[in-house]
Amino acid sequence: MRIDEHPVLSFERGEKINFFYNGQEIEAYPTETIAAALHAAGVRKLGESPELHRPRGLFCAIGNCSSCFMIVDGEPNMRVCVMKVRSGMRVEEQRGKGVVGI
């Protein structure tokens, strides 16, 4: 859920855009990170741990802890807590180790 009214802040979000989460179209604003846009849509599970396959979510939101790794436009290990969402972006849950193609 997005905050509409706030006692201190006002949010200038710009024009709505769409991106894809596991193939499903989701609305977002270009000022948001991927993680924030997913949270606003109610998605908090961002991936699975490599060995025990436990659900993984956001922890630090400053690009430091690596808990939020997702696959973005085919590229794994993207820190979606600090990566801005873009129109048409394809974001997928990362399961297992993110293997980078050479």
């Binding site: 599970k45 922890f59 807590c81």
Partner: peptide
């Protein structure tokens, strides 16, 4: 490690 456990700064 459940999604929903956050740092306060996050």
């Amino acid at each position: 490690d459940l999604p929903g456990v956050y740092g306060a700064g996050a």
